[in-house]
């Protein structure tokens, strides 16, 4: 039997964020003031890149500071040419934050370096930040406000990675077919989804289809209305609720609950289904979901 599921998705939160990003002025070419370089970073799911600054320090070296969205809020590299930083955030002997800096020229050590470029390579298991230009030569020292997320005054708006939307991606965005989520666990408020599961007619029986609408009424909490049809006949009415209990293991695991009330056509009795939902992302490509419960 073939099943097909179409999902039409409207995400107001993402729409507004995209519009904000698009409204920023085009990237300005930084004025050459010293050595130039690039930063490549790989961050765990709990961190996003805010921005990078660079300045000259004693000994002809440069201090490259990478500011992050979570704690630790900063990691630093001191280098003359090539340097790296590795941090184990959770003390589990696994590197959570990796950053590599490459300065292409060190001929003028008195001037702060220009670090980064529009092609800056930033990899993260969270949302990708696609545009970071980081003219460190324009950045003052950050030693006086390490814990602040606001950029230093005078830093051009276009150099901030933070001008990209910081929407934390839910750990799991894929959904099974037989049992489907009402939007992913951890959905943002206002997310709206309409979908329909269609089972084509095979062997003379009428096609069955079940359109449904899912809406996140609060962060991580969703309601659903589903109308199962057989041919053109409405068979039941379903009302569902889903809640997110939390995310853990660096936002790679999550769990929640689902409750559904169903009233079949021609029956007075209501049926209540209760389910526990658990999901785990393994690496960048694999994810597993388990739904268990009692109808």
């Amino acid at each position: 039997m073939i099943l097909a599921n179409w999902v039409g998705l409207w995400l107001p939160a993402f729409e507004s964020a995209a519009a904000t990003a698009a409204s920023h002025p085009p990237l300005k070419a930084p004025v050459a003031a010293g050595p130039q370089g690039r930063v490549a970073a790989r961050l765990d799911g709990d961190h996003l890149l805010d921005y990078v600054t660079g300045r000259a320090i004693a000994g002809g070296r440069y201090l490259i500071e990478i500011y992050l969205s979570g704690r630790p809020s900063r990691t630093a590299i001191k280098t003359k040419g090539v340097g790296f930083a590795v941090q184990d955030v959770n003390a589990d002997n696994i590197a959570d934050l990796l950053a590599l800096c490459l300065l292409s020229s060190i001929s003028d050590s008195q001037r702060p370096p220009i670090v980064g470029s529009p092609e800056l390579n930033v990899e993260s298991s969270g949302p990708r930040l696609e545009r970071q230009a980081l003219p460190g030569g324009l950045c003052p020292s950050r030693s006086d406000h390490d814990d602040k997320k606001d950029p230093p005054a005078g830093l051009p708006e276009t150099v901030l990675a933070g001008d990209q939307p910081k929407t934390r991606r839910p750990p799991l965005t894929l959904e099974p077919m037989l049992f489907d989520f009402m939007r992913p666990l951890g959905a943002e408020r206002g997310e709206l989804e309409a979908n329909a599961l269609v089972r084509p007619s095979i062997g003379g029986q009428g096609a069955t289809w079940a359109p449904e609408v899912e809406f996140a009424v609060a962060p991580g909490h969703t309601v659903e209305i589903e109308l199962p049809f057989e041919g053109g006949r409405l068979e039941a009415f379903k009302l569902g609720f889903q809640g997110t209990l939390g995310a853990f293991r660096q936002n790679r695991s999550t769990h929640g609950w689902q409750a559904l009330i169903e009233r079949a056509r021609g029956r007075r009795r209501l049926q209540l289904d209760a389910l526990h939902l658990a999901g785990r992302r393994v690496g960048q490509r694999w994810s597993a979901l388990i739904m268990q419960g009692a109808p």
Partner: peptide, 12 residues
Amino acid sequence: VKGVFNPTLFRE
């Protein structure tokens, strides 16, 4: 049906 168990594995 008294209980359901629905595990799913995805590969992106």
